[in-house]
């Protein structure tokens, strides 16, 4: 019996329905880049380690290199190309541009998509590894520089634009603050063996 190795699928990308036949092996990343000519989503490692291919799937950030295109059917996909409103940049894009939150620009679309999700995740009260008080009644933690650093750490930048990336995310989130030296977490064992 002949096995089918391709399917015709419909992807909902940036609010537009796109129907295309895909090889079942095709990742969402390759479908976007090679089939839909949406090359803004970048391929840095192709194995989920760098974050350059980050897109929003149903509003949540995901690395598109670890997602098969056929599995993305019926879901709402937002890529870097879907963020600006005509000539009007999204506030996160504008902040990255103004504060020079990039150099070579290759990790940038992934950073920006991630930043969008970071701001929403934070506003929804999601804690991170940098959140000091994770009790439900503690409410939304302040979006400190440390919080941004931790939440943006799935997106590698080899040019080393992290300092201005943190500033750009803070500006876009409306929490622009001076970056103090990071607080030193004191949880865990001290030399005397007592909890700090």
């Amino acid at each position: 019996m002949a096995q089918s190795t391709s399917s015709v699928i419909t992807l909902n990308v940036n609010g537009e329905k796109r129907t295309l036949p895909v090889d079942h092996r095709t990742t969402l990343l390759d479908a976007l880049r090679e089939r839909l000519d949406l090359t803004g989503t970048k391929k840095g490692c192709d194995q989920g380690q760098c974050g350059a291919c980050t897109v929003l799937i149903d509003g949540r950030r995901a690395v598109s290199c670890l997602q098969l295109a056929v599995a993305a059917e019926g879901r709402e996909i937002t890529t870097i190309e879907g963020l600006a409103d005509g000539d009007q940049l999204h506030p996160v894009q504008q902040a990255f541009l103004d504060l020079d939150g990039f150099q070579c620009g290759y990790c940038t679309p992934g950073q920006i998509c991630s930043a969008l999700a970071v701001i929403e995740e934070h506003a929804a009260g999601w804690p991170s590894a940098a959140t000091t008080d994770v009790r439900p009644e503690a409410g939304v933690p302040p979006l400190t520089a440390d919080e941004i650093r931790e939440r943006m750490s799935g997106n590698l930048c080899r040019c080393g634009a992290y300092v201005s990336i943190v500033q750009a995310v803070a500006r876009a989130a409306g929490v622009e603050t001076a970056q103090a030296a990071p607080a030193l977490p004191q949880q865990g064992r001290t030399e005397e063996g007592t909890a700090a």
């Binding site: 880049r33 090359t39 989503t41 870097i80 541009l97 620009g105």
Partner: peptide, 21 residues
């Protein structure tokens, strides 16, 4: 001065070597 190609880079419009059909 912000980068001349900055707008293309933050919107995904900048095409790198492997991205031209």
């Amino acid at each position: 001065h912000t980068r001349l190609e900055g707008r293309d880079k933050v919107t995904g419009a900048a095409r790198y070597a492997g991205e031209i059909p």
